[in-house]
Amino acid sequence: MKRLRIISFVLSTIVFSTTLLTTVQAQGDKKSTAILDAMSNKYQKIKSFKAIFTYTPDGGKSLKGDATVKGTKFRLKMAGQEIFNDGKLMATYIKETNEVNLQDFDPSAGGDLDPTRIYSAYKKGFKYAFLQERKEGAQTFDVVELTSTGKNSQVDKVQIQVNKADNSINSWKIFQKNGQKVTYKVEQFQPDVAVADNFFTFNAKQFPGVEVVDLR
C-alpha cells in the first residue's frame, strides 16, 4: 500500500488536465491572477495532449515520466508504474511485481492538485502571489507561488514557472508540509494528439501472468 500512496500523491501533483472548475473569487494580486488565468485558458482549449517530464526530489536524481491526457481520461508512466484511467476505473500497474490494483475513480476525491483540474485548481483552496521574473537563456519566465489554505492539505505551497512568450508551464515545485520538495519540469509537450479511448483502459491480455488486486 505504500507504493499506492506514493504514486497517488505523485499523480495528484502532475500539472496535466483540461477540466474546468467553477470560478470563485480570486485570492491573489492582479499580476499573479493575470498570469494564472492566461495559463489556465491556454490549456483548457487543448482537447488532448502527450507530455514528457522529469521529476526531481530535493537532493535526489532526476527521473523521467510521460503522460497522455484526453478530457478526464489519462495514462501516466513513472517510477516503475503505469496508471490507466478511463474516467471511471483507475488501474495502477506495478512492473516489479507484475501486479495491477483496480480502484473506482472519484474525480472529487483527488486532493489539492487533482490532475483533472490542476489548471484551475488555484481558484479554490489557494492564495497566490507573483514572486519574480526569471531568465533562462533566451527565455523569460514568471514565477507565481500558490499557498494552500486547506488545513488538511498535504501541500504547503507550489511555485509555478510560466513562460511569458506563450503562457505555457515550464516547471513547478511542490513543497509538502512534511518538508519534502519535488521539482517537475516539462521536457516535451504535444497538444491535440490523436488517441483512442481504449488507450486509457488496462488490458490484462497485454500483461501475461499479471496479478489483479481489486480494491473496489
Score class of each variant (00 low, 15 high):
Leu89Thr: 15
Leu89Arg: 14
Met90Tyr: 03
Ala91Phe: 10
Ala91His: 07
Ala91Glu: 01
Tyr93Glu: 01
Tyr93Arg: 00
Tyr93Asn: 00
Ile94His: 07
Ile94Thr: 02
Lys95Thr: 12
Glu96Phe: 02
Glu96Pro: 01
Thr97Asp: 06
Thr97Pro: 03
Asn98Ala: 08
Asn98Trp: 11
Asn98Gln: 07
Glu99Ala: 04
Glu99Arg: 05
Glu99Trp: 06
Val100His: 06
Val100Glu: 03
Val100Gln: 02
Leu102Tyr: 08
Leu102Thr: 00
Gln103Met: 13
Gln103Arg: 15
Gln103His: 14
Asp104Ser: 11
Asp104Val: 13
Asp104Thr: 12
Asp104Gln: 12
Phe105His: 10
Asp106Gly: 00
Asp106Phe: 11
Asp106Thr: 01
Ser108Ala: 13
Ala109Met: 10
Ala109Tyr: 09
Gly110Ser: 10
Gly111Ile: 08
Gly111Tyr: 11
Asp112Cys: 05
Asp112Gly: 02
Asp112Gln: 06
Asp112Arg: 07
Leu113Gly: 05
Asp114Pro: 05
Asp114Glu: 09
Asp114Leu: 11
Pro115Glu: 02
Pro115Asn: 10
Thr116Cys: 10
Arg117Cys: 12
Ile118His: 02
Tyr119Arg: 02
Tyr119Pro: 00
Ser120Trp: 05
Ser120Gln: 11
Ser120Thr: 08
Ala121His: 01
Ala121Tyr: 00
Tyr122Pro: 03
Lys123Tyr: 05
Lys123Phe: 06
Lys124Gly: 06
Lys124Val: 03
Lys124Glu: 09
Gly125Asp: 04
Gly125Tyr: 09
Gly125Lys: 07
Lys127Trp: 06
Tyr128Glu: 00
Tyr128Thr: 01
Tyr128Asp: 02
Ala129His: 14
Phe130His: 07
Phe130Ala: 03
Leu131Phe: 10
Gln132Ile: 12
Glu133Trp: 11
Arg134Met: 15
Arg134Trp: 15
Arg134Ala: 15
Lys135Asn: 12
Lys135Leu: 04
Glu136Phe: 14
Glu136Thr: 13
Glu136Cys: 07
Gly137Ile: 11
Gly137Leu: 12
Ala138Gly: 01
Ala138Pro: 01
Gln139Arg: 15
Gln139Ile: 08
Thr140Leu: 13
Thr140Lys: 09
Thr140His: 08
Phe141Asp: 02
Phe141Ser: 03
Asp142Asn: 14
Asp142Trp: 09
Val144Cys: 08
Glu145Asn: 11
Leu146Lys: 05
Thr147Cys: 04
Thr147Glu: 09
Thr147Lys: 11
Thr149His: 13
Thr149Cys: 13
Gly150Trp: 14
Lys151Cys: 07
Gln154Glu: 15
Gln154Gly: 13
Gln154Thr: 11
Gln154Cys: 11
Gln154Trp: 13
Val155Cys: 02
Val155Ala: 04
Val155Gly: 00
Val155Tyr: 03
Asp156Ile: 04
Asp156Phe: 09
Asp156His: 15
Lys157Ser: 15
Lys157Met: 07
Val158Ala: 10
Gln159Asp: 08
Gln159Cys: 11
Gln159Trp: 09
Gln159Lys: 14
Ile160Cys: 03
Ile160Gly: 05
Ile160Asn: 05
Gln161Cys: 00
Val162Ser: 03
Val162Trp: 04
Asn163Ala: 13
Asn163Thr: 06
Asn163Glu: 10
Lys164Ser: 06
Ala165Val: 08
Ala165Ile: 04
Asp166His: 13
Asn167Leu: 00
